[in-house]
Design a protein around this nucleic acid. Structure first.
Lengths: 125, 125
DNA sequence: TGTCATTCAATGACGTGTCATATAAGTTGA
DNA sequence: TCAACTTATATGACACGTCATTGAATGACA
């Protein structure tokens, strides 16, 4: 029943889980504390920041994160309410939206990224 | 600013994230479908199943999972309602509880573990 | 033994994620 | 050009996790 391989798999899985939770938790709390945004919000900012091209975003962003389409939509809502991002409708296809950082968003991302990278480094060593 | 090391860290992090979400999602859906329990519930069953000794559990279990104390309490609620686990108060320290699988819980765990291990194998290769 | 601090577990308020669905725009083909 | 289908995003109901707090039992110590 419980083969050695099984036990190894479970070990490996728990290790991934705990790394994930520990790291995500630390980053989330730090960002919340210093910048009043959660990890999820930061991750969207980060994706938008790194895609400089002006394609119709929402959709493509969805392909680069494990987040659900509906989760993304809500995160973007919050970022928009916080004045960090703006949605622009896309002339080519008016179903699509593309996203852009506001100045405040760009600035916050710049500062939060430092914290984010530092905590990743600390946790993924 | 964005050093090579930073980019590698972010890459590594996203890889952990996506492995975690993909795997957790698959297992969760499979267990839900076939056994009507979620991954979280299974993980508690699994921990209880593997600690054969009769210590005062709740507390110690908490040390072996990234779950919050309050999350655990609620998961155990659900497992108890489902008739898979029972709480017993501990004579030595009446604040503590220890947990035990019911027969149904043991049986379900046995079958679900097969599925769980198989999906881990498939995803963590 | 009485007080004060600590520990274990449960609970309620709340935020965020998911699923199913809605809305709106685009596409296809008779 | 009109249906039927598909695609992009938003939304509402609901489940689950977190935080802060509570209640109860224990420990420490004067």
């Amino acid at each position: 029943m419980a083969t050695t391989q099984d036990r190894q798999l479970v070990e490996q899985w728990r290790s991934i889980q705990s790394t994930y939770f520990r790291t995500a938790g630390m980053i989330d709390r730090a960002l919340e504390l210093k910048f009043s945004i959660g990890l999820t919000e930061f991750e969207i900012l980060d994706l938008v920041a790194e895609s400089a091209d002006a394609a119709c975003r929402m959709k493509q962003l969805g392909e680069r994160t494990p987040m659900t389409q509906s989760a993304m939509s809500k995160v973007v809502d919050r970022l928009e309410r916080a004045g960090l991002i703006s949605r622009h409708s896309c002339e080519d296809d008016r179903r699509s939206l593309f996203l852009e950082l506001t100045d405040a968003g760009r600035e916050l991302h710049r500062r939060a990224a430092v914290e984010h990278r530092a905590l990743l480094k600390e946790n993924l060593a």
